[in-house]
Design a protein around this nucleic acid. Sequence first.
RNA 1: GGUCUCAUGGCCGAGUGGCUAGGCACCGGUCUGCAAAACCGUCUACAACAGUUCGAAUCUGUUUGAGACCUCCA
Length: 488
Amino acid sequence: MSTIKNELLIYNSLSGQKEKFEPIHENKVGMYVCGPTLYSEPHMGNMRTFINFDMIYRCLLKLNYQVKYVRNITDAGHITNSAGDEVDSIGKVARLEQVQSLEIVYKYNVKFQELQRIYNMLPPNIEPTATGHIQEQIETIEKIIENGFAYVVNGSVYFDVKAYSEKFEYGTLSGRVVDELSEETRVLNAQDEKRFFADFALWKKANPEDMQIWRSPWGDGNPGWHIECTAMSTKYLGAHFDIHGGGMDLKFPHHEDEIAQNCGSVGCNPAKYWMHANMLNVNGQKMSKSLGNFFLPKEIVEGTTTVFEKAYSPNIIRFSMMQAHYRSTLDFTADSLDAAEKGFSRLSEAVEKLAVLKTSTTSSISIPDIIQSFYKAMSDDFNAPILLAKIFDAVKYINSVNDGKATITKQDLELLSVEINSFVTDVLGLTMEKLNSDAKLAPVMDLVLDIRKSARENKDWTTSDKIRDGLAIAGIEVKDGKEGTTWN
RNA sequence: GGUCUCAUGGCCGAGUGGCUAGGCACCGGUCUGCAAAACCGUCUACAACAGUUCGAAUCUGUUUGAGACCUCCA
């Protein structure tokens, strides 16, 4: 349906306000999102960013855009400190575990792919790896040197922020000004090869202990921190594409330097719209190992984290995340997750009821209006919490119809059913957990509940309660409703 | 120290210059042998102070508090 296509608004970090989304090529969207670095398992906070961009991707698809979604996989080590003397972060882990870098990368890639499935994330169209694009990175660096925005020192290449600032503006995304930066108290390290402290490495000469080394025109070494994103986004999406996303904490320096590299190599900002997803807190604080509120996305699903006393399904986690806007920080607490669990369950049950609702000749409310409100919420900077609120308005209506207090026509029911299912599963990425899904157990339960029914009819409460309590111990909850008994 | 963001009812969280989301909990009700579940209803909040305005929680200023980034970070 949706004959009226809403105007899509996107908050652009570049301007700091919501802007009308106008794709560079009509009906097509190129989107690049910074993916994981494979030297450890992504934690829950990483997942929030990926899940949010998954939702955004799903929204764009729902709006019938033809989306090319690229999310990189960083499998080459990065420089790990400002002096640049620790180049290979993956190699560092590999040395600790006494295995090869590639083993580390493979191990965590498998885990990451598994997490994508567990959390029901759509795979991007392309997941390019840094190590698969060394040549492209070298070529990008060569272009930047040619353009006069980088210099070679002793086998390493640095981006020349001062030279760049004469032609472009450095710091437009993060609101930083080079003059301000220079007033900072930081001093150039005596051995530092950089001309200016804000300069950053594009290529770093190999250290003897590096486990991954590549050949380049400047000698053996490693690519710098940010160049892979520039090289790969340009290769797969072009010099200028629609959306570039990532976590809020990547804004500076990573994204700022990406802009500089792109301007320095091809003369323009890589993206028209920059989007940043906000952080996840746990019990009111940023996740950190030292605070004891750190856990992995798999642990919370399996109930093996010490931070929470019970397990929460991926759907509950996702639902909880969808109840907050992607640009706001979100706090995970036992209370908030318990609330999400119940809310999600209420939603699931209403969606199930859609299939068995009785229809009438009239509808009490306007179904197209409800559906329009879904689109409107989604089109307002991907406002998932409002979308859920509107869906819950529909849930209330579904329940009323189910109780015979409201009516719906067959045609409206079909429409509502299709759209609610679409928004819940396709857009929000929630999967409806089927109740009574165990094919073997179902006939057994029918039998047991039939016996209990007879007992109740004979007012044999001892037997009926024995059955109910026994099933409860087995983890099966009996629900005596108006129209018979159900279980789950 | 610099740059910036945010402060919403018991909790999580949207949003808006006047019509004051949503989820969860609480309370009341319907249903029920009892209970649970389910459903319905109710609860009227926006840090403090001052200002602008016919009118602000929403705009401005000050104060207090929290957080982020400035170093790898989703």
